[in-house]
Design a protein around this nucleic acid. Structure first.
Lengths: 343, 343
DNA sequence: TTGTAAGCGTTATCAT
DNA sequence: ATGATAACGCTTACAA
């Protein structure tokens, strides 16, 4: 295009100075006379000079950008996390580059490869549901590339991570159902390959065990793609409802699954909690707005984004040794809405 | 920081070739012997060579990144738009850099300045509610910098834009209320400085006029920050409810306002539609899930993101003269749920 | 106090 | 068929 941008060279030419003088003047170096500085600054202003971040990046070998990889942006939980990430990034002068894996391993690998090949200084990632091979991440991680995992993490790598206490969230939710007299409690969760899924299911099982209830066959349903495809949820719900012993309550282990289950049950004309009670992980407004409102486990998504970005910046700016791994666990909020479990 | 990346130079050194030969071999130039090519390619593979996008950007004067400025990411409508943007960007090999204005003019200006100073090849923007001075955008635009406005646009600039037919959406929603016997129809909308707000209010007024109904005093409430602060919505609803002549129906002009109004009314213990009927612009699941479900105007958010990104790429890649302004208007979908307006 | 030159990684132009 | 060199915009030793 024809919009030739103003460079340091233009200023130098205009003023009959050398580029280095101009450069130093702009950076307010002590070795430049205040006269020259004023001249340069005025000229820069007049020509509307803007430093070229690309040139700077090349020189300084850093981009002041960070990459974020999530499965989906249009998701209450993740968009809230990204909000937190962007806020901190803005404050610290970083750009945020977003990519979606759409829960595809292949796409995650491609996204990562690209981002890590010097177009970002660090990475925030919540792994895709298909990801059970971590060599792509290990390669980067072992090179010392700053990475912070959030929400969906892995034991395969010793890394920095920000998560919520999924066990606790699921335990308390299940306990709440138990305390209200439900005994046939089913669970719908994400892929068994995901950390969040296992932690939540563990919490669920532990609560049942503490109340001497054996988990029944078929009571745990996995949605491999976490409900990215709606029919997956529908089918899981249908399987539960056609079990010989039908559950009287349901715990849904993610925002998307919660919304999807409510939707499926409503479409089938079932009453909540009349026909089946629901409690679940949810970061959307639906929990409060449906009638009666749902009790939910709310994840501190904004805080998670902020914490992860904070940590990442510490790594990038070497304020913390990369190998001093920090695992930060946030506490979920359990919101009890009394009427939600009336039998 | 010790992760020294492999450069073309390393390959050259390893093979005893010159950098230019290696560069050409990697780009499969016809002037390089197939032997040398094979050698170079193998070596590149072995050393895990990845071209440095920053160096390329500097040379080619383009970044293969685009900037997106929206008020908020954690918003059903905008996160769906961004999903569309990212999808197309991925297909075409572009990175997406996101920033939020949080409805602040000042912040929008800063975001823009930074992004446009060569760190992105083009810009997708939905202006903040505070923006009524467009000099920052005009400056860029007149330089020929590729910009596509979406959703919230402006007449102040002759630009490329993707919008929805807001007039039509609001007209039909209002008409639906009118046909169902409502006559005291109030509206809650965004700032009067926003294009979307005016277009929607025009549609609302036109429908009323066609049914010979004069808009009543106080029946149009503006939420300057579009409900970013929840209390703003609460107060608007409260003002409506304490009018001498209380409305029997409410049309809400954005996703956030729709959810916020339903929330406020529920909290006040009012029945929808028993006490007051609601229809509104909504891209979330709440409309289907509350009881009875709401009739809504759904914006084609994903399509808007895709269309805007498509257009932007055409501009960037000069497949279309920048001055051949295209305004693309998408059609909103009006979803009628019969029970939603029962008196 | 200011200027010269090298370098960041790559490609393109011009030699050889 | 391959190599040397300049250039993209900027910073920074090193000279002057």
């Amino acid at each position: 295009m024809k919009f030739e941008a103003v460079t340091i060279k233009d200023i130098a030419k205009a003023l009959g100075l050398s580029v280095s003088t101009v450069s130093r003047a702009l950076r307010d170096s002590y070795e430049i006379s205040s006269e020259t500085k004023k001249l340069v600054l005025e000229c820069a202003e007049k020509l509307n000079y803007k430093p070229n971040p690309i040139a700077l990046s090349l020189k300084e070998r850093r981009t002041r950008s960070i990459g974020v990889v999530v499965c989906e942006i249009a998701n209450n939980f993740f968009s809230q996390v990204i909000n937190g990430i962007e806020s901190v990034a803005y404050d610290k002068g970083y750009n945020v580059i977003i990519s979606q894996s759409h829960e595809s391993y292949e796409r995650e690998v491609i996204d990562l490869q690209y981002l890590a090949s010097r177009s970002v200084d660090g990475l925030l990632i919540s792994v895709s549901t298909e990801t059970n091979d971590f060599t792509h991440l290990r390669a980067l991680h072992e090179k010392g590339f700053p990475i912070v995992f959030f929400d969906r993490v892995t034991d395969e790598l010793k890394t920095h991570a920000v998560t919520v206490d999924n066990f606790k969230g699921a335990y308390e939710a299940t306990e709440h159902l138990l305390k209200n007299g439900f005994t046939k409690i089913a669970a719908i969760t994400n892929s068994e390959f995901l950390s969040i899924s296992n932690e939540r299911i563990s919490g669920y099982k532990a609560a049942l065990a503490d109340y001497n209830i054996k988990p029944k066959k078929g009571f745990i349903q996995h949605c491999f793609y976490g409900g990215m495809i709606f029919s997956e949820i529908e089918e899981a719900v249908n399987r539960l409802l056609s079990l010989p012993e039908r559950p009287d309550a349901l715990i849904t282990m993610s925002d998307k699954l919660s919304t999807g289950c409510v939707k499926t049950l409503k479409r089938r004309g079932l009453k909540i909690p009349g026909d089946i009670a629901i409690i679940g992980f949810s970061n959307s407004d639906i929990a409060e707005l449906i009638d009666p409102p749902l009790s939910v486990v709310r994840q501190p998504a904004l805080e998670m984004g902020k914490a992860a970005m904070d940590l990442l910046i510490q790594l990038i700016e070497a304020k913390r040794p990369v190998t001093d791994f920090e695992k930060r666990v946030l506490t979920p909020e359990i919101i009890i809405r009394e009427s939600s479990l009336k039998h």
